[in-house]
């Protein structure tokens, strides 16, 4: 079985919100209709989003760290939002584990949003139906987009590659390896929802450098940085083997 998911690396997310805007751009322009906004260019703008980046400050001054935290539907493997839906508009796809809402069936009762502990669902106040991340189901299976673009919009937009996309049930996928090797974790594990999306924690990267490693011990000229510079017509440095 396949379970598609996003892995979000909190170690590299810089909180630029590129994923938010590209998500909104793609999903508001699709055949499913817009993600409506109210007062978009005015005071108190508000609207429907699939994905939001929140910011938390961890620790006490001066030992603080700013953590940017992208948040969207986690496509839970045991999604509590699905069985409560009275119409069957909310469903989880067998073939790839994506949790979707059928906008033509949804009656806008909001019960599923009560049943999601993560607050991942938002009602569209104009269309009056429940909306949430679709994992860009219309991109990843597209037959018209170039092969390289068949990935969720947010993943493509992320300038730091903080977002990985793949099948977490395939042990050799990039995402499974990232979870395994970088301590990927699920949100609110206490509710047993088994979110498919995972987060990678902040990691400290450090190496130890000894003094002698700063000097090139095998440099015979002992003038590191002042190497002979050949003229344009002469052979390049790489061809000179004498030094």
């Amino acid at each position: 079985m396949t379970q598609l998911a996003l892995i979000i690396d909190l170690n590299v997310c810089v909180g630029c919100s590129a994923c938010v805007t590209s998500c909104k751009e793609w999903n508001t322009s699709g055949p499913a209709g817009p993600l409506s906004d109210r007062n978009p260019y005015d005071a108190d703008p508000t609207g429907t989003f699939f994905n939001r980046v929140q910011t938390f400050e961890v620790g006490e001054f001066p030992q603080t760290e700013t953590v940017h935290f992208p948040k969207s539907c986690l496509h839970c493997e045991d999604p509590p939002c699905v069985p409560v839906c009275p119409t069957g508009a909310s469903y989880k796809r067998k073939e790839d584990g994506i949790v979707l809402v059928d906008y033509d069936k949804c009656i806008g009762c909001k019960y599923c949003s009560w049943a999601c502990p993560y607050g991942a669902r938002e009602i569209d106040e104009q269309q009056k139906v429940m909306k949430k991340c679709t994992l860009c189901v219309d991109r990843i299976y597209s037959t018209t987009l170039p092969e390289a673009d068949r990935r969720p919009s947010c993943v493509m937009a992320c300038p730091t590659s903080a977002r990985l996309f793949g099948d977490i049930h395939d042990p050799d996928s990039v995402v499974s390896r990232a979870i395994r090797e970088n301590g990927g974790y699920a949100l609110m594990p206490e509710w047993g929802t088994q979110p498919a999306n995972h987060y990678l924690p902040r990691r400290k990267t450090s190496i130890t450098i000894h003094k002698d490693q700063l000097v090139r011990a095998d440099n015979p000229l002992k003038i590191d940085g002042k190497l002979p510079k050949p003229a344009k017509q002469e052979p390049t440095l790489d061809d000179v083997t004498s030094w």
Partner: peptide, 8 residues
């Protein structure tokens, strides 16, 4: 919270 004028 990832929104200026509030959200759902």
């Amino acid at each position: 919270p990832g929104a200026m004028g509030g959200s759902f």
